[in-house]
Design a binder for these strands. Structure first.
Lengths: 192, 192
DNA sequence: CGTCGTGGTCGACGATCTTGGGCACGGGCC
DNA sequence: GGCCCGTGCCCAAGATCGTCGACCACGACG
């Protein structure tokens, strides 16, 4: 068989090009044509690796998930449960440029998920990951072996709400304030 | 001067057409053309009343705000503070088809706000309205004359997070669960 | 060495938002 | 009463986007 190309490597390469575009010009500029130009190929070339734009976005979201998971895994777990839980959950908030871009991808995929089932499935998967991190934090804070579902769901909603506010209204919800509010909520959990 | 048309009435008429499309086919189907067809005009006719698509979305969002404000004002305030606060804040959650559509407009405008300053400004205004409702609820619950800023911001983030989850993952966050989680949080506020 | 499948480009299609030019109508002015 | 001209509206085109089909080139396998 002919000319065999490592699809995964190509996809990663394209995703990096996409990420450069997103990082430089914002997620709105991440069109098929601009990404192809960034990677130095024709727009149709992308079609071999990403049949549709949604697949591109989904791949970018997978990258976001992997990065966040890696950051969380890389935490050294030093300090008390409060500090560890706070640091872990902060990895899921748009507190610096990198995480802002990640959150932009997240929001864009969310908007697309309203009509696109594929995007919807990826969002649900990402949501699972966030939920697991929240569960971990709750277990850490309460010391109980299993996390209370209601507590988890509430913290989860708060976390995503904070992320949304920090992304949409950075003046009203600067990083320090988001951290502070998250800490306040974690405080109520540890106390009870 | 010639043929004078009531612009406000026309805009309202067009907004109703838009709303019919959104309600029937989802917010994704709300293109300039579909709205014009629904209203029985040509797409260019809309240009006299809404120069750009963002203006249409912004107008729809203003309608959402007005509807929500009216629902909140229409509450009869019966029952204890917990019940009143809960009912008021539930008006801002996507618990039925009407409010789901409203939340869809909200999310679409949020995505657009990342690149469009006009959409951004409208989102900030809507955010003000939500914040005021949350402040009102907090004052009601705590009995204090002024609401604690941190408490308000936290409840606000939780509320928007719940709305987002209910909109994106209706299976995981059905209306009853959203109500329950909101109630749980309000409970912690009333207790303190 | 030939074949054929894979990789890649070009061009086109349909849909979208947006814009400019042009037509019709009708209220104001002489 | 008749002429202006500004408003309202449509048509067509431009720009950009995602997607698709037809075509060419290369290279591994038989």
């Amino acid at each position: 068989m002919p000319k065999i190309v490592d699809h995964d490597a190509r996809r990663a390469e394209l995703a990096q090009a996409m990420w450069r575009v997103v990082y430089r010009d914002g997620v709105g500029a991440a069109t098929v044509r601009s990404i192809a130009a960034e990677a130095g190929w024709s727009p149709s070339a992308l079609r071999h690796y990403f049949a549709t734009q949604t697949e591109l976005l989904v791949f970018a979201m997978e990258h976001v998930q992997a990065e966040a998971a890696e950051r969380i895994a890389a935490d050294d777990r030093t300090g008390g449960p409060r500090e560890v839980a706070q640091r872990i959950l902060e990895q899921l908030l748009p507190l610096d440029r990198q995480r802002v871009r990640e959150a932009e991808v997240w929001l864009l995929l969310a908007a697309r998920a309203q009509t696109d089932p594929v995007a919807r499935a990826r969002m649900a998967d990402a949501d699972d990951g966030i939920r697991r991190a929240v569960e971990f934090a709750v277990v850490l804070l309460t010391g109980e072996p299993a996390a209370d579902h209601e507590t988890v769901a509430r913290l989860h909603a708060l976390l995503d709400g904070l992320a949304l506010h920090a992304l949409l209204y950075p003046e009203r919800m600067p990083p320090a304030r988001a951290r502070e509010l998250l800490g306040a909520h974690l405080g109520t959990l540890a106390a009870s």
